[in-house]
């Protein structure tokens, strides 16, 4: 089954075609990498998928449903998540709050505060950050961020 697919995805920056008529798909269970030289449009393609920027033409589908044209938060709630090239943590929030935000808003149904708190605590334990869960995220080492 196709998890994510794009058809003739195109984006221009002024006169420059950053992404031009790209067809791609990722199947269930696949791990796919995208490579290319600087300026090839890799990040732009990710930005188009997560709707950080709007595409000019083409269609992107997730599990058969069209996601191009939706807002970033809607795409996220459908189950598409992304990270950024430079880490973007909410620096003045605690590590726990950073993770809780994902539990609170990322799921389609939403979650109660208590559930989100316990889920975030478990996740932090899993990655070994529970001892620093209360400090502001900006005080973590770059690797831990």
């Amino acid at each position: 089954m196709r998890v994510i697919e794009g058809e003739r995805v195109t984006k221009y920056f002024g006169g420059l075609a950053a992404v031009s008529n790209v067809d791609f798909h990722v199947d269930n269970g696949e791990i796919v990498g995208l490579i290319g030289p600087n300026g090839a449009g890799k990040t732009t393609l990710f930005n188009l998928i997560s709707a950080a920027i709007a595409l000019k033409s083409g269609v992107i589908r997730f599990k058969g449903e069209k996601i191009s044209g939706l807002k970033p938060y809607q795409i996220c709630r459908m189950g598409v998540s992304r990270t950024f090239q430079s880490v973007k943590v909410f620096s003045n929030l605690s590590v726990l709050q950073n993770v809780m935000l994902g539990s609170l808003y990322g799921a389609p149904a939403g979650m109660s505060d208590a559930d989100a708190n316990s889920e975030a605590t478990e996740l932090l334990e899993f990655v070994g950050l529970s001892n620093v869960s209360m400090i502001p995220a900006k005080d973590l080492t770059l690797a831990n961020q």
């Binding site: 970033p72 003045n92 935000l101």
Partner: peptide, 17 residues
């Protein structure tokens, strides 16, 4: 919490749902 995350980084807040 959502308000604070917007102040910290609006783009990341949007992408976290």
């Amino acid at each position: 919490l959502a308000l604070q995350s917007i102040g910290e980084n609006e783009e990341a807040a949007a992408h976290i749902g």
